[in-house]
Structures are given as C-alpha cells and as structure tokens.
Nucleic acid binder design. Structure first.
Length: 856
DNA sequence: CATACGTAAGTTTTT
DNA sequence: CTTACGTATG
C-alpha cells in the first residue's frame, strides 16, 4: 500500500519532532481536545465560526500522521462536494502528500459509490440512472395519469413530496401499507402510486435521490456480508453538519459503526488478521466523530431530525462531548446580534458565542419603499465597499426565496457589479441541457424511459406521443432495451415508413455512441479494441448528428442563441471533466452532474459578488453580508408560520445568515413587495426586534417608510403604524451621506407624521432636501409607468448605440447629472465611469443604465 | 405531429 | 409577471 509513503523521514514535522505538535499549534484548549480525543464516539458541538473545519482536518491529519489509520480507513462526510474538495486540499497541505484512498464526500456521493459497486446484488446494473426531482415528477405524472389519481387530488408534486418523506424515514411500500388507514380510499390509492413508482424505478434501473441513502441502508441490512466489508474498512467515520442528518442518513451511520460479527469475518477479503479483532473475536465498531450545531439546523423540511444530535450521547454510549464556543469569524456586534436572535428559541441548550475580535462596525439597516429601492441600496453599498477595498468576492447577498433574485440582479447589472447567482435555476435544469443530457443518460442506461422519451422529442423529428407509445409497448412486450426496440422498429407495424426510418437512424446513432462510450469491443469498421471514448467526444457526436446547436441557431429568437451557447458550455464542461479525470467514463460524468449542489458552484477566485439563499449559505463565510427581505412573511416565511416549530427553524435560518458575516452585516427590507401583479404591504420581521437597538445603524428605518406604498409625499405624511414596535425606528446614527437621514430621535415613535412635520430633532435642511428628492423620484417613477415609487422604470432599456467619451455630460434617471470620466469594456459590456454631481462616482453599464446624453 | 396562441395557475428552503 | 398546460390551427 502506498499509504506508507506518507511518512517520509525528514518531514518538517512529526510526532517525534519533540515539543509542541504542529497540528495542535494555535488551537484553543477545546479545539485541541476535539483533535486529540480518542474513543468510540465524539460529539463536537461547534458554534458558528468556531473553527470546526480546522479541527476536523487536523484530527484526520493526526490520525494519519501518527499511523492510527490509513487514509483508506477514513470516511469523512461533508455537506457539499465543494466542502469535500476543500477538506481534501487542506489535508494534503497538512500532510504534504496525497491522501489517496480516503473517502471525503457527501452522503449521496458516498452512497452512489457503494451502490455502483454492489448494485448487481439486488437487480440493478451499475450504469443506473439517478433521477433528480424533475425526473421523479415526470415518472409520477405518468403514474398518476394512468391511475386517474389526479381526480383524488394527487399531483406529481404532492405525491413526490410524500414519497420523499417516507423514504427519508426508511418506510417502504409494505411498511406504509401496514400502518395506513385501510378504509381511506385516498390512502389506498397513494399506496398504489407509491408501489408503482418503486416498480417503475426498478424497471428503469434508476434510483431517486432519497433511494441513494435508503437503498444503501437496505443493502447493508439485507446483506451483512456486504456491510461487513465497509464496517471493516472504515475505522474512522466523521460527519459534518450532523444536525441536518435525516433518519436514513442516521441509520446509514449506525450500520457503518456496527462491529463485525465473527460469522462474517471468515468471508472477508483480504483475510482478517488477529490484531484487527477485539477480545470477543469481533472487529470492533468504527470510531465516530460528528460535528454539528443544533442552532444551525435548517433542513427539517427535508427530514433533518434535530434529535440525532441532541440524543447523540444516548445513541452512542461512551461518547465524549466537546464544545467549541469561541468564534474566530465575526466581530462582537455581529455575534451579539446572532446570540440575541437565537436566544429567543426556547427549546435549545444555552450556548453563547464570544470573540476577542472587538466590536467592529455597527450592523447597517435599511428599509426601501420597494424591493427595487432595497436592491438599489444593496448595489450602492456594494460599490462603496468595493471602493473601500473590499473585493467583490468577499461580498454576498442572501435571501429567503429564489424569486428575490430578480430585482437584485437587475440593479447589479445596471451598476456593472460582477455577480454570480448560486443555485436557483441551475445550469443542469435548463431544458436544452436536459435534452442533451438525456442522450448521455440513455446511452448509459438504455432501460431508462424518462431519458429515452425526452430524447425522442428533442430536437423535434416527427416522433410524437403515438410513435413513442408504440415503441414503448413493443419494448415492454419483448423485454428488451429501448435502444434495441428502436433498432427493431421494422417489427412495429404501426410505424409508417417515414417514422420507421427516423427511428432506425436515431437507434443507429445511439448504438454508435454507446459503443464509443463503452469502448472495449472492436466494431465492424474499426479493428482496434478501443478504450472508452472521452465523454466530450460522445457528446460531440450527439450534438453533431442531431444538429441540436445548428437548429437552435437557425431560429431568430435571441433566447435560442443563449440556449445554443449553453450547449457549447456543456460540451466544454464535459471536456473539462475528461481532462480532470481521464478515463473516468460516462457514468462517472453523469453521477457528478446529478450530485452537484448549489454551493458547489462557488468559485472563490471569481471576483464576483455571490447571491444565494440562506440555505445555500450554510458553511460559508464572507467579509460583508447582506441579508435582504427581512420581512414578516418572507423571513420568517409565511408558509412556516403555521407549521409547528416553523418559526424556530426560520430563526435558525436568520442565525445562520447573520453568522456568515465576518466584518460587515447589512439587514435590508422593503415596505412594499410586489408579487405577481399587485403590491402588498410588508412588515418588518420580528427577528429585527430581537436584535438590540444599539447594534443597528438604521440608514432608513422601517418607521421612516410608509407601509402604504403611495407616492412619496403620501409616504411622508402617512401614519407610522406599520406594526413595528419601538425597536429600530429611531435610527440615531445618521451618517452624512446621501441616503442617510434620521428624522426622529429614539423615542419618536407614535408621532403622527415623520420627517417634514418633525424636523426639529434632525437637520431641517437635509430633511427638506430628502423630501424634495423623494418627490422627484416618485414623479419619475410614475412617469415611467409604475403606480408606486418603483425607482426603476419598467421595460428593458437598450442604450446599445449610445456613444460616450470622457468629458460628456449625461443625465441619469436616479442620480441626476454627471460627467463621464472614462469608458471601459466593449460591446454590450461597455462600462461608463461617471462622476455625478450629487452622489459622486458610479460605474454604469452603458447598455442598460437609465441614462441619456445631455447637450453640452 | 408541430406550432401558435390563449388561459389558468402558482412561489420555501434542496441533495 | 412568469411558466405550464390545453386547445385550435396549419
């Protein structure tokens, strides 16, 4: 085993180096204990930013360095693939060599790996497809239609949700049938759907997401000899984010940490040596380390069970618990806010994060009139931060729901701020990408009806539902693959000569591509026994032969151009995969694509602002963080308000968001929010009131902004009563900047009119200026067609041809007049640098900014 | 069988 | 305001 080479003599450090262990250098006592503790089980309660990744990597490094374990005996479970890659990298840096054989991966990746090795044992083939939620829904749609279950209120979404929940609880069809209410016809129908769904998955040689975990557990339970292989191999199992494990994942860990009984031992290969055994003749259970923080449990909706961590000591007798409470990430102000918010959850263990980093800047609060106003503030602040020297890559914008990205993106584009949206409508969810991927999936798994059916229809080639049904019937009757069925299209009488030719041609293409992908067998026209072709080449063949890209380009919809580009991007991704993992093969590529998580897209070196949901943000950190939409109904989300424990979970989400920030934290909201057509009133989130007043510097407090969203003048005269208690309404820390005006002192709540009527406590002149400014903005917004002070006019602007050069005077709808100092970039990405008379320097995307040239 | 157009419905968070 | 789905038309 090459593992021995890890410990080269003369390595810069080592256990024998004398004096302090470099792996413990700079750790606090709790962290040190978490690294050095040995025993059957260890729970590391790691508050946000307490250095748990460091502890985890150092712990593993120590195990390997001191020869307590080979890398191949370690299984480390992380929450995302990116975290896994990072951990592996840090480990290699610590040990100064590779860590081949060590499994560092997500639950899902680890399980796929096991299933691919062992799938034959229960009737699957190694090339099985992994169905994403869309595929599952497609399958359920057919089933529900076939059973006429929609008249009972079943939809692919609700049935899929219920099945997913059951699978996370490891409940099988039979298990559910045994406990259900027999007299409820709806229940019986559901069992029918569930049962058919499982049957179809099996026929399709496919697993859904939840199966990956559940079937692995099932495999271990039904095949103790298989389980023994992994129980013996993994001597140290480490699980990160343990608070978000569900029952299936918990059970998997349980299975893996069982001792190997004597009756399994003799069959193990390579033979078990005596020193692997304990006194009772068993291979002792693996040592388990879990890291988690129950305050950061935010995945209850997908079955995460907080009890897994709360009851850890009961589950694993002899467990040691180490608490990490010192925070190395955030300033005291940020931590105080986080502690204050989470302190309102009643059912938690008392825990207080502290830091020695100092107070730092105050948290900045801002209330916009609309989400556009809010987004504008975010964009401006990002520009200011950037001017201060904060890199774009150190800034993140969080939100509760993906739909909030729209307004933010619009403003970021116009401000020429480079940004990236993580998650959301992901690349691999785009129709054209799924179309192309369907070919690859079908090649890897010719029994997959979902991929096959998608492939038939894209691009359009005259094969419709009828032809598909005939072929599918033939396939089923013959018990052959879809590909073979296509090659025998001549035996399907219902197909006309034209269709038959089309089907045969497509079948031929698939056969050719499949031979390429499989390699090995010499084909009739080439004598050499080829190695499996790179994925990129297979995909290239598909794209060329189907002319998917050309067909898109031939249309004149500009959206189709973007789709064509996406396909080219996919080809680049495939080639990159080939270069990175030569010879890994098609199935490996498909697996990787299936299991990418939203946060995996994050590229630290990209130099862009990152936009993401607060769920995606878990485990990440940024120098500056904006939490947007801090409103009742959004955060906490309306849906969660009625759920039991919903508010607590939302509060944890807020806590996770706050604790991502290292130095600067912004909390923003809007007083009105547009959904669909109309505008609804938004009230400040209850979580805002839980943050001590003195921690927040309100640039514009909720009290200053009407909840009625009329014109600006009405806004100023409207009564305050937005339902917001005293907590933030008295922003005292007004900075001398354009949008910062404090109208009232801290106790000014309840006075009928804001601003103009009560300028005494503020600065009369600035209040009046502000009022004029708002009025002007409101007028402009109305002229632009909005019924309320939507500060951005509707419609897509295109200044494409606008010629600008240094010295030109321009007028901006929002910032007023200014002078161009320079233009950079080219084409649609031309950026004008403008010094505005009112707000100073701004960078604007010429194509989209609301500007016009002023005759000079 | 494909396209074009109309209408209805729907927005929590994700591996 | 979008997206998905159904219907009428080529």
């Amino acid at each position: 085993m090459s593992d021995f080479e890890l410990l080269e003599p003369g390595a810069p450090w080592g256990a024998a180096a004398g004096g302090a262990d470099p792996l413990l250098d700079g750790l606090n006592p709790a962290q040190e204990r978490a690294v050095t503790a040995r025993g059957p089980a260890l729970l590391i309660v790691a508050g946000a930013g307490s250095g748990k990744t460091r502890v985890l990597t150092h712990r593993i490094a120590q195990l390997i360095r001191d020869r307590e374990a080979w890398p191949s005996q370690i299984l480390a479970i992380t929450f995302t693939n990116k975290a896994a890659a990072e951990m592996r990298e840090r480990m290699e840096a610590l040990l100064g060599s590779g860590v081949e054989g060590m499994w560092v991966s997500t639950f899902h990746s680890a399980c796929v790996r096991i299933l691919r090795r062992e799938s034959e044992r229960f009737g699957y083939v190694s090339g099985f497809t992994i169905y994403d939620s869309a595929d599952s829904r497609a399958l359920l749609k057919r089933i529900i239609k076939e059973l006429d279950a929609d008249s009972y209120g079943f939809t692919p979404a609700n049935a899929g949700g219920k099945i997913s929940r059951l699978k996370n609880e490891l409940t099988s069809v039979d298990g559910y049938r045994a406990t259900m209410n027999e007299s409820d016809p709806r229940e019986r129908l559901f069992v029918e759907i569930f049962s058919m769904y499982e049957q179809e998955l099996r026929r399709a040689n496919a697993f859904d997401f939840d199966d990956l975990i559940g079937q692995t557990v099932h495999l271990f339970r039904s095949h103790p000899d298989v389980a023994a292989v992994y129980q013996r191999r993994f001597r140290h199992i480490l699980v990160d984010e343990y608070q978000d494990t569900n029952h299936a994942q918990y059970s998997l860990i349980r299975e893996l940490t069982r001792p190997v009984e004597p009756e399994q031992i003799e069959r193990l290969v390579p033979p078990v040596r005596d020193r692997e055994l304990d006194a009772s003749g068993r291979i002792p259970a693996a040592s388990l380390t879990v890291v988690g923080d129950s305050d950061q449990s935010i995945y209850a909706f997908r079955g995460a069970d907080i009890r897994n961590i709360v009851e850890f000591e009961r589950d694993f007798p002899g467990a040691e618990v180490v608490k990490l409470e010192q925070n190395y990430r955030s300033t005291q102000n940020i931590l105080s806010a986080a502690n204050a918010v989470i302190g309102n959850n009643f059912d938690r263990q008392e825990k207080n994060l502290f830091t020695t980093a100092g107070d730092g800047a105050k948290i900045v609060g801002f209330t916009g009139y609309s989400q556009h106003d809010e987004a504008r503030f975010v964009a401006e602040e990002i520009e200011d931060l950037h001017r201060e020297g904060v890199a774009y890559g150190d800034i993140a914008v969080f939100y509760r729901t993906n739909s909030q990205t729209r307004a933010l993106e619009e403003l970021l584009i116009r401000s020429a701020i480079p940004y990236r949206v993580l998650g959301g409508t992901k690349f691999y969810e785009r129709a054209e990408i799924k179309d192309a991927m369907a070919y690859l999936t079908s090649i890897a798994n010719p029994f997959d009806p979902i991929a096959w059916s998608r492939m038939l229809g894209a691009p359009k080639r005259g094969i419709g539902p009828m032809a598909e049904a005939h072929l599918a019937n033939f396939q089923e009757a013959q018990g052959i693959s879809f590909h073979d069925a296509m090659l025998r299209a001549a035996e399907v009488p219902a197909l006309g000569p034209k269709l038959r030719a089309t089907v045969l041609e497509l079948g031929g293409l698939l056969a050719r591509a499949a031979r390429m992908a499989a390699g090995g067998g010499a084909t009739d026209d080439s004598a050499e026994a080829a190695a499996p072709a790179p994925v990129g080449e297979v995909l290239k063949l598909i794209l060329d032969e189907t002319e998917m890209i050309e067909k898109l380009r031939a249309r004149r919809d500009p959206q189709d151009d973007a789709r064509a580009e996406n396909l080219e991007e996919l080809l680049a991704v495939a080639r990159e995969f080939d270069a990175k993992q030569p010879g890994a093969g098609l199935v490996a590529f498909l697996t990787e694509v299936s299991l990418v998580a939203a946060a995996d897209d994050l590229d630290d070196s990209s130099g862009t602002v990152s936009l993401m949901t607060m769920h995606t943000a878990k485990g990440l950190e940024f120098k500056a963080v904006f939490i947007t939409g801090v409103e009742e109904g959004l955060l906490p989300h309306q849906m969660s308000v009625e759920e039991v424990g919903g508010i607590s979970e939302e509060r944890r989400l807020m806590y996770v968001g706050i604790t991502r920030a290292r130095e600067r934290l912004y909390l923003t909201l809007a007083s009105t929010r547009a959904t669909f057509g109309d505008v609804s009133v938004a009230m400040p989130s209850r979580f805002l009131q839980e943050i001590p007043e003195g921690l927040i510097d309100w640039r514009q407090s909720p009290g200053e902004v009407t909840s009625r969203g009329g014109t600006a003048s009405r806004a100023l005269n409207a009564p305050r009563g937005s339902g917001f208690g005293g907590a933030g309404s008295g922003g005292s820390g007004s900075r001398a900047r354009d949008s910062a005006v404090s109208f009232s002192g801290g106790g000014g709540r309840g006075s009928g009119a804001a601003a103009v009527a009560e300028p005494a406590s503020g600065n009369m002149q600035s209040a009046l200026d502000k009022w004029r400014e708002r009025k002007r903005l409101a007028k402009e917004a109305q002229a632009a067609g909005g019924g309320f002070p939507n500060l951005i006019g509707g419609g897509v602007r295109d200044n494409g041809e606008l010629e600008l050069g240094p010295g030109d005077r321009i007028r901006h709808e929002e910032y007023g007049d200014g002078r161009v100092t320079g233009v950079s970039g080219s084409g649609s990405k031309r950026i004008a640098h403008v010094v505005f008379d009112s707000v100073g320097e701004r960078k604007l995307l010429v194509k989209l900014a609301p500007i016009s040239k002023v005759e000079g």
